[in-house]
Design a protein around this nucleic acid. Structure first.
Lengths: 227, 227
DNA sequence: TGTACATCAGTGAACGCGCGTTCACTGATGTAC
DNA sequence: TGTACATCAGTGAACGCGCGTTCACTGATGTAC
């Protein structure tokens, strides 16, 4: 219908957004230009007015998925608590598009335990399309070329740094392990067909990670650097 | 060349073996019937004399990859130590084909720590094609239909059970967490582009998992059930 | 404010390609005599 | 042991299909007068 410049920006945004969701749900390989364009009510030809190639879109969609999944992990669950914070953070519809990498401290959650519980929830497990892209796409990216691996590496390190900041001892080592364990547990919970066992993985990882956060017994220092 | 019945069995074995490697290296989606057949020096048409469809092969190749990856994790590293045990275990070339699911206890490693160190090694990280299929294909299978997820679930539970047996307290909870963390850490180490950081993830997971195995401080019972 | 026109967002036919699958075939295998 | 023949493992042309990408086009946008 309309062909204004403002609408072009909105179309691009819708394409990228849909792509970010679809790759998390079905993987990088499954994204098809034709089906993607149909899903945002456009025809395939128009795609190349927005992106140079499928592969360029893939890189941008991965970036977007990583930002969005990280943001979703930091804020409360999308159904209820997001409503409450909408007034303060989001001003316009397109505001979220620019400079999402700059924001660091303000949006982080209360503490490590809250973060872990939110990440290893049934809700997160059951909605990969809006969830953490690190978990959803790690195998895909592990097999991909360096450019995509660099994009994910950067976000992974950012995530680890935030986890470390949430820990009492700020240990990078612990944060690195916690991130790996959370990603692994979410993945495993998505594989298991028995719902009880799927829940059990999440519960087990929650328990052990929260126990890990309340410092180790060998170096029994209440608060402060261990070495 | 030859078309004997014995050769047909060997062809089938080569196809399945190659498929098990290729899916671990490049994912389920990337497996192409034509390229697979070319890689074992056959033509695409012959494929349907061995398997009913690509999808049937995929299920069998996943099963094979899971068995093989598990076996590789249990025995020593393929380069040196396998040589030593070759005389005792492998009798003929086709012996490995039959009844690989039956063997349980004899091939398990000395202890939990050895297992962890072997799993979270640079060698395992750098050879996904012959390594653990749980790590290589978890995202792919998480997105797949129930049949494939059931196949992986069964192997995952088998793996968890073996881990639990290797733990002093035999806690399923701990084994479930350890399996998730090992899978996650291996995946993350394969994503990270910085070699030093990739090594750091493996080291961090190794340290924390081995510490986890030497029982927790809150319930300080030396050996026996906690509840 | 109203008309003339360049711009350009989105359309849809067309391209070459690789895919999974089918099938008539070829020629070595292995059996019956 | 030697010949005649049915079997069947593997071949390669052909199929219909969806893919990524190109391009001549249409018609609303938005600017110049």
């Amino acid at each position: 219908m309309g062909h204004s410049q403002a609408e072009k920006a909105r179309s691009r945004e819708r394409i990228l957004q849909q792509a970010a969701e679809q790759i998390r749900e079905h993987g990088l390989k499954s994204l098809s230009v034709g089906k993607l364009m149909r899903s945002v009510d456009l025809t395939h030809g128009g795609f190349y007015g927005h992106f140079a190639s499928r592969s360029e879109l893939l890189a941008q969609a991965l970036e977007r998925a990583l930002c969005e999944g990280g943001a979703a992990a930091r804020t409360a669950d999308p159904t209820s608590a997001t409503r409450a914070t909408t007034g303060t953070t989001a001003t316009t519809g397109t505001a979220a598009t620019t400079g999402s990498t700059a924001t660091t401290a303000p949006a982080s959650p209360a503490d490590f335990a809250t973060w872990v519980r939110r990440y290893l929830s049934r809700q997160h497990r059951d909605s990969p399309g809006t969830g953490c892209a690190l978990a959803a796409l790690s195998s895909d990216v592990a097999r991909a070329e360096e450019p995509l691996r660099k994009v994910m590496s950067a976000h992974l390190e950012q995530y680890v740094a935030r986890l470390a900041a949430a820990l009492d001892d700020h240990e990078d080592d612990k944060a690195l392990f916690a991130a790996s364990a959370m990603i692994g547990a979410l993945l495993v919970s998505r594989v298991l067909t028995d719902p009880a066992r799927s829940d059990a993985v999440l519960a087990a990882a929650r328990t052990h990670l929260i126990a890990l956060a309340s410092s180790d017994p060998s170096a029994s220092v209440p608060a402060g650097e261990s070495l």
